[in-house]
């Protein structure tokens, strides 16, 4: 019987959950906002209700005791206690919600059907089940109204537009911040261990698939970074610029809207360090020989 009760209790709790979830979004939000804003009031009301309940029980007990005393003085014995056996409010609600016929009275609701020995009882539909069903139907109708016949619910297109408006603000803020950041005209190669290590990680994740894990270049894809030849100019400024604006016609992505200027800075510096590392399977040189001395673009190393 114990397991039975637990299972039933669990099952009925779960049964109520979808109703909460299902409430249409804005209404749900509004309700929650109210609850959160007035949390003191909500808790307070709960406490007051409980206090009344406890007081009521206490008064009842005191009155009963008093009565017994008075009657005892007159020689009348009051039988000990019915009020302890009184079912709790929750028990009553629970019984009502299930409306189960006790097992020993099952015979009265046997329908007399017999299918290969299987009998059928005429139990009521559990009321909580019926009301859950009604509730989902009401919510369903409400849902259709909210999303299709009112201005409350957003269509998926409207939801998208809203999200993109927010994104635009975020992007603008970012670009504004980037305007003060390092760019291709003022970039100077970094040489600190930490930056180069971070750049190595970015390289493995974002560059290696076309340029090789060690920057050796891949046939049919990105050029070799370990030789002295560059298709779009060597030196940190040109490399920074190639990362930033890409070479779309050759398949090189423009990273400016996906990568922080500081990361492009580290990456360009890291790529410079690959020269002369002689990894296995290098791709043949492409572009022109880049000689730093011939250029005004001075390198840190």
């Amino acid at each position: 019987m114990d397991i039975n009760k637990k299972v039933i209790a669990l099952v009925s709790c779960l049964g109520m959950a979808p109703a909460l979830w299902a409430v249409e979004k804005t209404a749900q939000e509004a309700a929650w906002t109210w609850v959160v804003n007035n949390i003191v009031v909500v808790i307070g009301l709960g406490v007051i209700l409980f206090a009344f309940y406890a007081l009521w029980n206490t008064f009842e007990a005191i009155i009963y005791d008093k009565r017994r005393q008075v009657l005892a003085e007159q020689g009348i014995e009051l039988k000990p206690k019915e009020y302890v056996q009184e079912d709790s409010v929750f028990k009553k609600m629970y019984d009502k919600a299930w409306s189960l016929v006790p097992i020993d009275k099952e015979g009265e609701i046997d329908l007399g059907h017999d299918y290969d020995g299987i009998r059928e009882l005429d139990n009521r539909l559990p009321p909580w089940w019926v009301y859950t069903f009604y509730l989902t139907i009401v919510i369903g109708i409400g849902y259709l109204y909210v999303y299709h016949y009112s201005d409350i619910g957003l269509s998926q297109q409207e939801e998208y537009s809203e999200a993109m408006e927010e994104a635009k603000v975020q992007k603008l803020k970012f670009l504004f911040a980037q305007s003060n950041a390092v760019n291709e005209t003022n970039v100077v190669a970094l040489s600190d261990e930490k930056s180069l290590q971070e750049a190595h990680e970015i390289f493995s994740m974002k560059c290696a698939s076309c340029h090789g894990k060690q920057g050796q270049g891949l046939k049919g894809l990105g050029p070799n970074f370990t030789d002295q030849y560059w298709k779009h100019g060597g030196g940190v400024k040109n490399i920074f610029s190639t990362i930033k604006y890409g070479v779309p016609e050759k398949g090189m992505i423009a990273w400016k809207s996906q990568m922080q200027a500081s990361d492009m800075h580290k990456l360009a510096s890291y790529i410079l360090t690959l020269e002369g590392t002689n990894p296995p399977n290098p791709k043949e040189p492409e572009g022109d020989l880049w000689v730093p001395e011939n250029n005004t673009d001075s390198e840190a190393n």
Partner: peptide, 16 residues
Amino acid sequence: YFLPKAANRPVYSYKL
């Protein structure tokens, strides 16, 4: 079929 057979109990509710 198999649950009432295995449990040897009547089906709870015909209406349900």
